[in-house]
Design a protein around this nucleic acid. Structure first.
Lengths: 251, 251
DNA sequence: GTCATCATTTTGTATGACAGCAGTCAAGAT
DNA sequence: ATCTTGACTGCTGTCATACAAAATGATGAC
């Protein structure tokens, strides 16, 4: 019998999984910055585990694209390119649109009411400008839909994608005018859901995400430009990758 | 200077990456069957590397959902559930529709002509019923679009998704009537692309994928039913990885 | 056939070792 | 002062070994 559902003795969580989660959180939270090297021995000491566990967790993060590993140079917190941001938002738009469509069409009235509750919190908080709380509520909002829709794969993919652009995404919130604009879009989405109009909800959410993408890209470009001008006069930055600012197009 | 264009000593590919690729291929090709246990020591011996490299590759495969790891029981080739098949096809439909839309709208005339070439090969081969060749050409077809569209993320995701359902997918080809039906759908897609009608191409491809999903699910259910009735009278539990007589026999 | 008991595998983790690439820094050359 | 060179150091990639705890398999009792 393999399905040990009724197990009494909780077996201890695997060290490598604990390491994985803590590293992942640290990266997403921005505690490690893009480009930072993750040195194994350091991580060992700080987390009190052996290299074995650290390295296995790193392989997992590598597969999630949260770190990049150049052979014999070791892992680095993933830098994100402009093209990647564009692509991630594009796919996010597709997936979230599908998600909200299903939610509008299939969620129970209670689930929709609960979403309305989260939405109202969010709407109010948006007027106060408490960015961390806005981020948290936005997350709650989408997570609520994921739970209700019960689409493991879309949920999984969205979580991984948002992890990759979390830093950029948070920046985008503080783009002037963004909050008002997006508030309007979200209102339409919420109304459409309540009218069970999946199509409209999906279309509106797509617009919302596209605008969010535009805001993120704007901030990204600003940061890039600033970083460039600094590195031009300032000290020599140890940059591993060429990281051309514009026109990264290869032929 | 790190622009290693003129490197003489081609640095050896990392062992863990070689292991990763070989294991991944073995799983996708069905050389290991779903539910088979992957025992570290065995893999070490058969591949001539240490547990370190094997285990790191396994963590990567775990992140790709090609293996499942229950704590302290070790890795097992991922079994796929009916729900997962449904979900994967749903997302595949979304992503491939987006892909073909972009291709229809942006590809060069030459790229479209090349696609037509692959398509014609495929169309002819379909009449002959050579399943392996059909599979190969279908893969070429989609890969050609990925290359042309140059959307790293969608390409990446599609590759990972198809890896997970490869076995089921191949089975579906031999569903009676499927080939004729899908031939028709593909023809519409191809025509729409040539007329630069991204919308129609996307819609048709969605239908195509949905039908493919239906065929796969049908075969999946058949196999399931058969397996159930066998296990009811025959040997008891669903054995994980008995040393199959065919192939490498150990013990 | 079911169940308890013991032997054997296998995983999870730690430790130590070492070759070899990568980045650094100081000494010498121009 | 700047550039070049070469030694130095830091890390990664990989292996071998070890061992506790859990899982699996075998054995025998009821």
């Amino acid at each position: 019998m393999t399905g040990d559902i009724l197990r009494l003795t909780e077996l201890p969580p695997l060290r490598r999984d604990q390491v994985l989660e803590r590293l992942r959180n640290a990266i997403i939270a921005g505690h490690f910055k893009p480009g930072d090297r993750l040195i194994e021995r350091e991580l060992c000491e700080r987390m009190g585990v052996s290299r074995t566990s650290i390295r296995e967790a790193l392989r997992h993060l590598e597969a999630e694209h949260l770190i990049q590993v150049e052979p014999r140079r070791g892992p680095v917190v993933a830098r994100i390119t402009r093209k990647q941001i564009v692509e991630i938002y594009e796919v996010r738009a597709l997936l979230e649109a599908a998600l909200v469509r299903r939610f509008a069409e299939r969620a129970s009235d209670e689930q929709i009411a609960a979403l309305r509750g989260i939405y109202e919190d969010l709407r109010i908080t948006r007027t106060t400008g408490e960015v961390p709380r806005i981020v948290a509520l936005t997350k709650r909002y989408i997570e609520h839909m994921m739970d209700a829709v019960d689409h493991e794969l879309i949920g999984d993919m969205l979580r991984k994608l948002t992890a990759r652009i979390n830093v950029v995404r948070v920046l985008a919130i503080s783009v002037p005018g963004r909050l008002e604009e997006s508030g309007h879009e979200l209102a339409i989405v919420m109304d459409a859901i309540e009218r069970r109009d999946g199509e409209l909800a999906a279309r509106s959410l797509t617009t919302y995400v596209q605008n969010a993408a535009a805001a993120s890209l704007k901030r990204f470009d600003e940061v890039e430009r600033e970083r460039d001008s600094v590195s031009k006069r300032g000290s020599r930055t140890t940059r591993a990758a060429p990281a051309r600012s514009s026109g990264a197009g290869r032929k």
